[in-house]
Design a protein around this nucleic acid. Structure first.
Length: 430
RNA sequence: UCCUCAGUAGCUCAAUGGCAGAGCAUCCGGCUGUUAACCGGAGGGUUGUAGGUUCGAGUCCUACCUGAGGAGCCA
């Protein structure tokens, strides 16, 4: 049976339409029943007057419960009293399935309860708004890279060995050998960019870190561009353009969702290149002035990142960290070999690191040396060393964590709401 | 792994060491414009688990379990 989606309902004013959806909320007033119906595309109020309908229709409207699935036929009418401006004068109502005792009521709930009911919580207008923004962000990343002639080249999820050490890898069985879930597609993208020039991978990544903070998930999604012949400055420029494009795209296409989330968009509207660039040492000076006790030469903690980011309205690019705190594959700065050609992009408003990138070591002997000093098994990296033996070139790339970007753009307290089914420390259900 | 806090009705919470309660949800009744409606009524409890102190424990003590927030580490 043909039916109409709620988002298109304004085109059918005065006409009879059929809506298929779920009951979001119901209020009763004497011989009147107001049914708020959602169908995934929108919300519309359906009004049932006892006098105007057959007794069985009014009985169904009286009996229908929150989240019951239903089919409604009625005439579309503009009405100022209706949320959204249009409502449905119901003539027929079929309850497809009567939902009994839906656990999530229109009142407040605790986080633990909502997470236990994540499969149902997803139906709420706030959650669908967040996940629509997520969808837009992902499409924006793909469009941005496609427009710049990047080729999507997927990288494996099962990997034979560590990318950057084994302590934070999820180990799994691969028939009769051990395998690990990927932490990053980067090393493989370094191979594919030598074939395609400009590539990106976009997939889930897994980190077995026992992190329990608002910024961490065990399973999260990253978009990772990698470019042959690119140096650090090139990927810094790409990073600020990508972030700006994504933010503006969401502002342009997901206004309603941001409004639903009560996001103050004035700060987001300012997100355009160029972003401020500061060195690790400049960032460190900011921390010292703020009284941080982080020792020089070490990586920044979450609160440090917030202190630095608060100095700027735009995302800030912190580059050239000490070589020791960065991964084995990061190219040292020829101007000062103690510094790494790397960049972290810190989002404003305390959302922390959304991008980590670097120029990669392209010299065979240097890479070999770095593998050894990081105590990594050479056998596992023979293929990776080959890339430096057969036509090596300078190359750079970065990874952007989708969930942190979603949390920032939506203005959320916690990344757990940015992904349909978050995998968190001690929580894998549902 | 460490630190802090919490666990009482389906949900959110209250209860000085002295009868275990409220709001919402559910069910029944009323109301022709509700927006988390409102008004009246009803049902609903092994107070996370195990032990201990006490005349008496939801409350105090110990251990454990579960959850939340944070640290370290990271995107």
């Amino acid at each position: 049976m043909a039916h109409t989606y709620i988002e298109e309902i304004s085109q059918y004013q005065g006409e009879e339409v059929t809506i298929k959806g779920w009951l979001y909320h119901k209020t009763e007033k004497g011989k009147l029943r107001f049914l708020m119906v959602r169908d995934g595309t929108g919300l519309v109020q359906a009004v049932v007057f006892q006098k105007n309908v057959k007794p069985e229709v009014f009985e169904a409207a009286d009996r229908v419960t929150q989240e019951s699935s239903l089919i409604i036929k009625g005439k579309v009418r503009a009405d100022e009293r209706a949320p959204g401006g249009y409502e449905l004068d119901v003539s027929e109502l079929t309850i497809f399935q009567l939902a009994e005792n839906y656990p999530i009521t229109p009142k407040e709930h605790g986080v633990a309860f909502l997470m236990d009911n994540r499969h149902l919580w997803l139906r709420s207008s706030r959650q669908t708004a967040i996940l629509r923004v997520r969808s837009e962000i992902i499409h924006a990343c793909r469009d941005f890279l496609a427009e710049r002639r990047f080729t999507l080249v997927d990288t494996p999820i099962f990997t034979p060995a560590a990318c950057e050490g084994t302590t934070t890898l999820f180990e799994t069985q691969y028939f009769d050998q051990k395998a690990y879930l990927t932490q990053s597609g980067q090393l493989y993208s370094e191979a594919t960019c030598m074939a395609f020039g400009k590539v990106y991978c976009f997939g889930p990544t897994f980190r077995a870190e026992k992190s329990k903070t608002r910024r961490h998930l065990m399973e999260f999604w990253m978009v990772e561009p990698e470019i042959a012949w690119a140096e650090l400055d090139d990927v810094m420029a790409l990073a600020e353009e990508l972030v700006s494009y994504v933010v503006q795209r969401v502002l342009d296409r997901k206004k309603e969702e941001l409004k639903r989330l009560e996001r103050d968009t004035t700060l987001l509207e300012k997100i355009h290149p160029p972003f401020p660039r500061i060195t690790y040492h400049e960032a460190f000076r900011i921390l010292q002035e703020a009284g941080s006790e982080t020792p020089i030469g070490s990586d920044f903690g979450g609160t440090d990142e917030t202190v630095i980011a608060e100095k700027f309205d735009l995302p800030v690019m912190v580059h050239r960290y000490p070589v020791e705190v960065k991964a084995f594959y990061v190219q040292p700065d020829p101007q000062d070999l103690s510094l790494a050609l790397c960049v972290d992009v810190l989002a404003p408003e305390g959302y922390g690191e959304i991008i980590g990138g670097s120029q990669r070591v392209h010299d065979y002997h240097l890479l070999l040396q770095r593998l050894e000093s990081h105590h990594l098994p050479r056998e596992a990296f023979e293929w990776y060393l080959d890339l430096r033996k057969y036509g090596t070139v300078p190359h750079s790339g970065f990874g952007m964590g989708i969930e942190r970007v979603v949390a920032w753009i939506c203005g959320l307290e916690h990344v757990r709401e940015t992904i349909p089914f978050p995998r968190m420390l001690y929580r894998i259900y549902p």
